[in-house]
């Protein structure tokens, strides 16, 4: 039975090693990460945006719709890609950026752009044009809603599915709704009707606009505010 013993010891031991090295040890190292605070003249400020109910709901919609199969939420450093040059963030993301996420949507494929900082006003999706000045992409709530409903009206080459079922086609009663989409051409609803976002779409957009990891962190070099503002 010596041979069988060796076999079992090998199988169980190797699993224990795998579990220790890739689960327990990292958990020990990263599990205790605390949010970083900025101390300025004795006044301590939390640098994390406080999530509200809409953001939490939107987060759930992001998961339900599987957005993370095509969009990452992680910015790599200069050595590992062009993420920073493209304007997806002002610094690389680190473990501390995700401590409040029960399911961090790191993602594994970039069929679409990275969204780690899409809520930041500095977010771009293109490298800076040498001739023109720094020009952030306009990603406000109206843009995001229109893009969810009919991606190709705003990004011509987009591969994103239109999420029509997050919206409803409603008969205009009296005044047009404030959040009705400004649709033209073939996407426009028939006269007398308007397309308005359902609560899920609004929550998703609230979540997207909350995504911003621009704040500086001690462990990331080059993330000091003055560098970030360049």
């Amino acid at each position: 039975m010596n041979r069988s013993f060796n076999l079992f010891a090998g199988i169980i031991g190797s699993f224990a090693l795998s579990c220790y090295a890739l689960v327990l040890l990292p958990k020990q190292q990263l599990g205790g990460l605390q949010p970083q605070t900025v101390e300025d003249e004795g006044k301590i400020t939390e640098i994390y945006p406080i999530n509200n109910v809409a953001v939490e709901k939107g987060r759930a919609v992001y998961a339900s719709e599987g957005c993370f199969y095509c969009h990452t939420q992680q910015v790599r450093d200069e050595q590992n890609g062009t993420d920073l040059e493209r304007g997806w963030g002002v610094r690389r993301t680190v473990a501390r950026d995700y401590i409040f996420d029960t399911t961090p949507f790191l993602g594994s494929n970039r069929v679409g752009p990275d969204l780690a900082n899409v809520g930041s006003t500095k977010w771009r999706n293109e490298p800076v044009d040498e001739n023109s000045k720094y020009k952030p992409a306009k990603r406000d709530a109206a843009w995001q809603l229109l893009h969810l409903y009919a991606p190709r009206t705003v990004i011509k080459s987009s591969n994103m599915p239109p999420y029509r079922y997050l919206f409803e086609n409603k008969k205009i009663s009296g005044q047009r709704s404030v959040d009705a989409l400004a649709l033209t051409g073939s996407d426009a609803p028939e006269p007398g009707y308007e397309v308005v976002p359902k609560p899920a779409a609004k929550a998703l957009v609230a979540y997207l606009l909350s995504l911003d990891k621009s704040h500086p962190l001690k462990e990331v070099k080059g993330s000091a505010p003055e560098v970030a503002a360049k």
Binding site: P26, L30, G31, Y98, T102
Partner: peptide, 22 residues
């Protein structure tokens, strides 16, 4: 079992992603 347990607990932050990758 362990990976689903980690989702259920839930384990927070990137360790969750690491366990899923594992």
């Amino acid at each position: 079992g362990l990976a689903h347990l980690a989702v259920a607990l839930p384990v927070q932050g990137v360790v969750q992603s690491l366990i899923a990758a594992w």
